[in-house]
Nucleic acid binder design. Structure first.
Lengths: 236, 236
DNA sequence: CGCGTTCTTGAGATCAGTCAAATCAAGTGG
DNA sequence: CCACTTGATTTGACTGATCTCAAGAACGCG
C-alpha cells in the first residue's frame, strides 16, 4: 500500500485529468477565509502557495486552530464526505488554492484508481498531524507543546525547501494569537514560554520569522520525539 | 460524493470480495493489545464486537487515549499508509476484529472502486472525531470536555443500538484511568468533576455503566453543541 | 474473609488564566 | 520628520483550575 500511494509519479493520463480539474484557481488575501465552518462544501482544495490554517470558532469567541496548511496539502475532504465543513480555513498570508470540483470528483476517482490512494494517503497524513496535536494538548506542558510544534513545523518546511540557514530559520507569518489558539493556551502564557525559550537560547520567534537556535534541546523538550514520517509529499 | 460513499449497500460483487478478505478473525481478551505503537502494520482492522481504544504511550509513562473504537469502525489505516503504527490499540472488553490483509488491499481497491470511497469516508469520520478531541483538549474546561465526551459517546452507541432507557443508559467498560487519559486530566480531577455532575443530577458514571440524567443540561455544558454528523455507518 | 485494585476525598503546590497596563512596531496624515 | 493611531507584544500582580501527594473507603475476586 505504501508503495502504491506515496512513492510514484503521476501517469500521463492522471496528469491530464488533474490539469482538467485544476481549472479553478483561487487567490485568497491574507486574513480572509477560503470557506467557513458549517458551509456546504462545493470543492476540495489543494494549497498552492502561502500559509493558511484550519480553525473552529466557538459561540463565545474561543477558537481552536486545528492545523497549519502548507503548499501541497489537501483541505476539505471530510467536509466533502459529510456535506458540511467542520472547520473554516483562513489565509495567514496571501494564499493560492487549486479547487477540485466535488461534482466531478466521484467520476474521477472511479476512472483514476491511483488518485483515491493518493487521497487516502493525504487523509492519513492529516489525521496523524491532528493526533499529534491532541497528544500535545492532552498530555504535555505548554513548553513541551511549543517545542513539538516548532520541531514539527520546521520539518514540514524543510521538506518543501521553505527554510534557510540549514533549516534553522524560516519565515513565520503567524502571530502569537494564532499560535496560542493552536496550542491551547492564552497569548499571555505563550508569550512567557517564548521569552523563556529565548532566554535559554533555544528558540526565537519574532515578527514574521522563527529561528531555532538549539535544535537538539528543542527536540528533547518536545513531548513527541518520535521521528516524523519521512515521506515524499504527493502533489495532488 | 456523499451519496456515493455512505448511503448505499454493498453490491453482490463487493460483498463477495469482502467475505474473502474477512477470512482472518481475531479475538483479543480484555486488557490485551491488538497491535503496538511503532509496529509495522500487516493488516487493517474492522472492530466487530466489544470496546477498544487507540492510545499512545510516552517514555515517561504518560498516556494519551486518542479515541474509543466501537464495532463497525476501522482501525490502522494511517499506519498502513506510512509503514508504522503511530498508536496502539487495546481491548477494553474482550473484543473481536476482522483483519484485512494489507498485501491484498491495493488489488482490492483497484478492482472495487466503491471500497476506496468507503475507506475515505471512514477515514474522514475518524479524523473528525480526533479533531473534536483536539478542540476539547485545547479550548474547553474539564467539565465541558467531559460533557462533550459523554454526549458524543451516547450518540455513537445510540446509532449502534447499544443503549437502553431511550439512549440514556448504557454499558461503559472504561475505568476512570482510561477516561482521564482520554480527556487529558488527572484521575483525581476527573473524579471531582464526575462527582460534581452527579450531585447536580446530570450524569452518573459507575462501575461499568453510564447514565445520563439530564441530556439537555449535559449538551449545554458541552463545548461542541453542533449536531454530530447524522450518517449511516458503512460496514466494511 | 483477605487482598489488590479502583474510587473518593483532603490539603497544599503549581501551572496557566485573567485583568490591566506599559511597551513596541508599523502605518498615516500633517 | 513628527505627532498620532492602531494593533501586537511584553510585563506585573493576582486568581483560579488543575496537579501532586497522601490517605481512607468501596468494590471485586479468589
Amino acid at each position: 500500500m505504501r508503495r502504491a500511494v506515496g512513492f510514484q509519479d503521476f501517469s500521463d493520463a492522471e496528469f491530464g485529468f488533474m490539469s482538467e480539474l485544476k481549472a479553478e484557481h483561487r487567490r485568497v488575501p491574507a486574513g480572509a477565509d477560503l470557506f467557513q465552518q458549517d458551509d456546504a462544501p462545493t470543492h476540495v482544495f489543494t494549497a498552492f502557495s502561502g500559509w493558511a490554517y484550519r480553525y473552529r470558532l466557538f459561540g463565545d469567541g474561543r477558537r481552536q486552530i486545528l492545523g497549519v496548511v502548507l503548499p501541497g496539502e489537501l483541505v476539505g475532504v471530510p467536509g466533502a464526505a459529510f456535506g458540511r465543513h467542520a472547520y473554516a480555513v483562513r489565509a495567514a498570508t496571501e494564499a493560492e488554492f487549486c479547487a477540485l470540483s466535488l461534482a466531478r470528483l466521484p467520476a474521477l476517482l472511479r476512472e483514476q484508481e491511483g488518485l483515491s490512494m493518493r487521497l487516502l494517503w493525504l487523509s492519513s497524513h492529516e489525521q496523524r498531524m491532528v493526533e499529534r496535536l491532541a497528544i500535545s494538548l492532552g498530555r504535555c506542558t505548554a513548553e513541551e507543546t511549543l517545542a513539538a510544534f516548532s520541531v514539527d513545523l520546521r520539518e514540514r518546511l524543510l521538506r518543501r525547501g521553505m527554510t534557510e540557514e540549514g533549516g534553522l530559520s524560516f519565515a513565520f507569518p503567524l502571530g502569537q494569537a494564532e499560535v496560542a489558539d493552536h496550542l491551547g493556551m492564552t497569548i499571555v502564557h505563550l508569550n512567557r514560554v517564548l521569552r523563556k525559550l529565548e532566554q535559554q537560547k533555544i528558540l526565537v520567534v519574532r515578527r514574521g520569522r522563527m529561528e531555532i537556535l538549539d535544535l537538539d534541546r528543542l527536540r528533547k523538550l518536545s513531548c513527541l520525539h518520535e521521528p516524523a514520517d519521512m515521506v515524499p509529499q504527493p502533489l495532488l
